[in-house]
């Protein structure tokens, strides 16, 4: 089996939903981002409440408690992602891909205390690294995971020289490859484009420099840009 970090979730209708669990690198940075926000909130509260004497100290401790335990919960159940996760395009979901709600979010965040052991989330990091779905302890108990939030597919844009009606039958996988070729041809060098187009010549029956524009025409036909 080939190594891959994308997982397929099969729905009851037999449709595969592709999700990519987010790994240790991006989650570490997202955590640091959230940590900085939390520190700023607590510091602001501490400055504002420092004038209120002993009661102020009590209130500061309450603020610290709330921010430590409920900052992620509130953001995860309302938006599905904390600001840190949002900045790295991550979101929290249940194992079946559904958005997380109070129960899951609360459990995974309460068990952050277990992940923290013995210091600085060492257990959580090791657990995440060894888990096939990049889950830390809290994720295992809450039945949740953190995945990349895929950007919505944009309408493909690519330029092609000649408009020509190409009548050719391709299967689905090949269609995808041809469209990807047309879309990404900007980032490919001309020589590389030629190489790739030449591979397809047994199917398209076109060789030489013509082959590139021919393939792009096919792609344009496929996405309805004739």
């Amino acid at each position: 089996m080939k190594i891959d970090n994308q997982i397929n979730l099969e729905t009851a209708e037999g449709i595969d939903i592709q999700l990519t669990p987010a790994g240790i690198g991006v989650r570490t940075l997202a955590f640091v981002y959230d940590l900085l926000i939390r520190v700023v909130i607590v510091a602001a509260a501490a400055i504002a409440l420092s004038f209120a004497g002993k009661m102020g100290i009590g209130l500061i401790l309450i603020v610290v408690f709330l921010v430590e335990w409920f900052y992620p919960v509130v953001f995860e159940i309302t938006k599905g992602q904390t600001p840190g996760k949002k900045s790295f395009g991550l979101t929290v979901v249940y194992d079946n891909g559904l958005p997380v709600n109070l129960a899951g979010s609360l459990i995974r965040n309460l068990f952050r205390a277990a992940d923290f052991l013995p210091a600085f989330y060492l257990l959580g990091g090791v657990c995440m690294l060894l888990s096939s779905h990049n889950k830390r302890v809290g994720d295992y108990i809450g039945g949740t995971m953190v995945v990349y939030k895929e950007a919505p597919i944009r309408m493909s844009y690519f330029s092609f020289d000649k408009q020509q009606k190409v009548d050719i039958k391709l299967d689905e996988e090949t269609q995808k490859s041809v469209i990807a070729f047309a879309e990404r041809s900007k980032t490919l060098s001309p020589q590389r484009q030629q190489e790739l187009a030449d591979i397809m010549s047994p199917i398209t029956q076109v060789t030489g420099p013509e082959a590139i524009s021919h393939l792009k025409s096919i792609a344009a036909n496929l996405v309805g840009k004739t």
């Binding site: 391709l170 060098s189 790739l196 591979i199 397809m200 047994p202």
Partner: peptide, 15 residues
């Protein structure tokens, strides 16, 4: 990304 490996594999399979 730069060399379109996935495209190459897709094209070869199609052929």
């Amino acid at each position: 990304m730069l060399e379109g490996w996935d495209i190459e594999i897709g094209f070869k399979r199609a052929v």
